[in-house]
Amino acid sequence: MTTTWLAEHLGDDGLVVLESDEDVLLYDTGHVPGALKLDWHTDLNDPLTRDYVDGERFAQVMGERGVGRDTTVVIYGDKSNWWAAYALWVMTLFGHEDVRLLDGGRAAWIAEGRELTTDVPQVEPVDYPVVERDDSQVRAFREDVLAHLGGPLVDVRSPGEYSGELLHMPDYPQEGAMRGGHIPGARSVPWARAANEDGTFKAREELEAIYLAEQGLDPAEETVAYCRIGERSSHTWFVLTHLLGFEKVRNYDGSWTEWGNAVGVPVER
């Protein structure tokens, strides 16, 4: 969705706009009029288990934001829509049909001088059905990745993370992983290559040049993307699935914070 489309449709019946940011306070500093906050961590992650919320909690999170099962949801956020893409991917696990990204995210809206407000809209809660999460289609677990070794894998982290170099100063060990490197056979395609300077997605031909021509990925082949905790790879998952029409892309949300800590899994440098 373009910013122009959104500006013209704000307030439409059947449309709910959600902001999903890395920075948990950013929404409160000003947001698209009528938009509601959806926090990737406090709303979409289970507080105890490292996993997403269950169907009941998801129904509550959606319902209290006025989102029904057939509502059109447009998500935008900071950091070139990383967290917006992540939220969209989590909504996909629950099979929400109509969920879209605002191209360029928060930065594009602001750069165009469009209206921001700190008013938090009062929402009439609606009933969202309790739907069981389906992890079998767009999500990969560690076992799935082990079984997939040899197949196309995309590592979307920075080149330094991919190569396993430690970039931190003395006294500051690389937090979050016992081992540096990447999953054997993974191609390094940093997520940002899919984005323009202004955070919007590159045109389809440019994306094809990177992912198909240069990297040799095949839209018909099952592909797995990963990063550190699954947010940047949600961005690439969106690009491959929705912009390039790949048939089956799974996001390995355990990503490097699981793989780099797991005992006995193979690591390549």
């Binding site: 920075d23 306070l25 950013l26 409160d28 500093t29 900071d78």
Partner: peptide
């Protein structure tokens, strides 16, 4: 940056 209110906080 102002776009990082949590970090600033």
């Amino acid at each position: 940056p102002a776009e990082a209110p949590t970090t600033r906080g």
